[in-house]
Design a protein around this nucleic acid. Structure first.
Lengths: 167, 167
DNA sequence: CTCCGATACTTGGAAGTCCTAGATTCTCGG
DNA sequence: CCGAGAATCTAGGACTTCCAAGTATCGGAG
């Protein structure tokens, strides 16, 4: 399988970065860590969802619809809420529709807008998927609750500064 | 442009998650935050590298070669050090080679192995790119040094548990 | 010395993300 | 009321990542 390195590759990068005088070492290290963390948890999450025929992004879209009052939302609004590009939503909804978990319906009153509506099959799957993800704790089982909260709080500043939402 | 939401979408997800009794709310929140943070910094980094004709993954590969004693490494070793799949390295080196920033050379003594060697053009570009990234602080300029360190330390546990390296 | 499993890389395919560029449809100011 | 600009979605392309399979090579067991 995957043999672990005898040293931490990010520590090694820090050393090299410092030796070469490239600056912003802490930021480099944090950015690399976040990238790797994303990779690890995404892999674990998708592994847990595979038996259900879902991926993380499709699950997120499905959960958003499930949470909505009427079970339907305009694609554009979904993109904003999920913080992804509009074309990604089109792609995601395409797949979900192919699998019968969502259906597109016209918006009454605005013919530009398309609504995605979760189907009964979609509801059934999203509930199972949520249980599967809670089971593996989103791949973050080793992290104590205080660390999880700390990550949240710290990253909130970045999201805020990036203009995701108002204070 | 991108109008900020009047509320934090991750907070909203926490509420929904809790109301539905889906469990592991803190883990869900942290996983979503990490995903979003990755998205934000990757976008900023690639923006800063675009004028140089690089992407983040290509920069990482180039920097690794630049740091190596001889300027050349087997592709397999690069994959382990960069913590990505072997086929991703093949892809990345393909692009870098097309742009004349690295060249493939045979390994003396093992004909299975292919070495990627950084070229003078590659060296020139990677130094400029490092300066550009330090300039924008890897998209993490808002984060104080203590937060950057905290992120690092916390995520180290996840990477360790994922088998990235030995303690 | 030969054979067969392990290693190293590449190919082809599936997913996801984003961007640029259309085609519709709505809205509001003149 | 009508036309220009804004808003909404889709199409096509670039990029990354991964997986599954295939080819070539090495190296140790018998």
């Amino acid at each position: 399988m995957n043999v672990p390195l005898p040293f931490d590759p990010i520590d090694e990068a820090r050393r090299n970065w410092t030796v070469h005088g490239w600056g912003a070492t802490d930021a480099m290290s944090a950015a690399t860590s976040i990238t790797r963390a994303h990779q690890i948890i995404l892999h674990r999450i998708n592994e847990a969802l595979r038996p259900l025929g879902l991926t993380f992004s499709r699950f997120e879209a499905l959960a958003l619809l499930h949470f909505s009052r009427t079970g339907a939302l305009p694609l554009g609004k979904m993109g904003v809420r999920l913080m992804v590009h509009p074309t990604s939503v089109t792609n995601t909804v395409d797949r979900l529709e192919t699998d019968g978990l969502v259906e597109r319906t016209p918006h009454p009153g605005d013919r530009r807008t398309v609504l995605a509506r979760i189907t009964p099959a979609g509801t059934e799957v999203v509930v199972k998927a949520a249980a599967a993800l809670a089971e593996i704790e989103f791949g973050l089982g080793v992290m104590p609750a205080t660390s999880l909260r700390a990550i949240d709080t710290t990253i909130r500043d970045v999201r805020l500064e990036a203009g995701d939402f108002l204070p």
